[in-house]
Computed example of a mutant assay.
Amino acid sequence: MNPDTVTTVGGYVPVIDISSRHSGPGRVALAEAIDRACRTSGFFVITGHGVPAELIERMRTVTTAFFRLPGEEKSAVQRPGFSGFRSSGGTTAQSLDRRTPPDLCESFAAHVTGELSDREREMLGDYWATWKLANLWPQEPAEFQSTWQEYMTALHALSADLMRLCARALGLDEDHFDDKFDRHVSSLVANYYFPQLQEPLPGQLRRGAHTDFGGLTVLYQQDDIGGLQVLQGENTWQDVRAVPGSFVINIGDLLALWTGGRWVSTMHRVINPAETDTSSRLSVPFFFQPNHDAVVEPLRPITSEADRERPETVIAGEWMAMKTQKLFAPAQ
């Protein structure tokens, strides 16, 4: 794969066709392309991923239908914590100790571990964590639960293979991360950015500027409505327009720490629509998170100033739980 022929979104985020990943030479070229992307923007867009278009469309349809239900029906699957329905998606910027008004979105979240037994979930750390909660599924739409579970299975398979390509990109054996994700605590989250019928508060966005916490994020975003932006350098925000049939991939804090600063966990946000735009927007990230007890330590010397400010070794679950609690902490 010649870097001079790679297309980009907004001139910054590369678009990578991963359909060649089932061949040996194809995996070598893809690993090199992923390494280049993760050393610069920390983001890339994938096509040729193999997740059925019919499943993606069914996921979009049932999820949109859920968010358009009356408030009392959605509230039937609402509770404190990052699971089930939330009428507020939290204040994402607080995960970086930045104070802003709440994000302008609703959300619904489910965890891979949410289908385990109560006893199994209680063993996933001796502290509060969202992945220790049982999933709450709405009764309507009727296919909601089955579609989400099918989608999570497909995204898990894709994410696991992407992590193997990441390992190759870092000069490691492809199975290097397998035992760090074999009991993963991943989550699937839908963000519904409802129509903005009144002016936002100062500093209020659909999603405030933040980095993701964990391993890999695999994001579906609507093809026809933009809003996602990635920070380039100190103060330049680049649009990441939707490419039909694609997923947006970005690495999180833990994977960046694993690389010792070779790869970057990049700030991103979702901006508000134009003043006259009253459309809604749906995005669905799958957060592929390590095992709760995975030990994350740099594979190579820390090279960036930002990484010197982070602990050299963290326990994955403790880090992610701390970040999540900040996200939903009451504004001060």
Rank of each mutant, 00 (worst) to 15 (best):
D103T: 08
A76P: 02
T217D: 05
G11N: 04
Y193C: 13
N2H: 12
Q198M: 12
V296W: 02
L133Y: 14
L55K: 02
D239G: 13
T7F: 06
G226N: 08
L254H: 05
R68F: 01
Q204R: 07
D17Y: 05
H176W: 15
N191K: 14
L299D: 00
Q332P: 07
S88K: 06
L219R: 01
V243H: 11
Y192G: 13
F43K: 06
L55F: 03
D175E: 13
E120W: 00
A110W: 04
H268C: 10
N2S: 08
T130E: 15
L155P: 06
L216N: 03
L197Y: 03
E150Y: 00
S23Y: 11
D277H: 10
Q221C: 04
H184I: 07
F43V: 08
H22M: 07
G252V: 10
S283F: 04
S41F: 15
A33Q: 14
D224G: 08
T313E: 15
G214Q: 04
P101Y: 14
T303G: 14
T91Q: 03
A33H: 09
R36C: 01
S146E: 14
P330G: 10
S283A: 09
G71P: 04
I225L: 07
E143P: 12
H22P: 03
N191F: 12
P202H: 11
L170G: 06
Q332H: 12
G261F: 09
V243G: 08
K74P: 01
K74H: 01
T313C: 15
V62C: 05
K74L: 03
P25Q: 09
T61Q: 09
S87N: 02
A242K: 01
V296M: 11
T8Y: 15
S87V: 02
N272V: 12
T130I: 04
V9G: 10
L172C: 07
N250C: 06
I271M: 02
R98P: 00
P101W: 09
E143D: 15
T113N: 12
I225W: 02
W128P: 07
E106C: 00
S304I: 11
F287W: 10
S95G: 10
L257M: 13
A33P: 09
I225E: 08
S117F: 09
S20K: 14
S95R: 09
N291D: 15
M267R: 10
P14I: 05
F247M: 14
K323P: 03
A109N: 14
R281L: 02
G214Y: 10
T236I: 11
S75R: 00
V189G: 02
P101M: 05
A316T: 06
A169K: 09
H292L: 07
S83N: 15
L155D: 12
E115S: 08
G26H: 08
T266I: 05
A37C: 11
A33G: 10
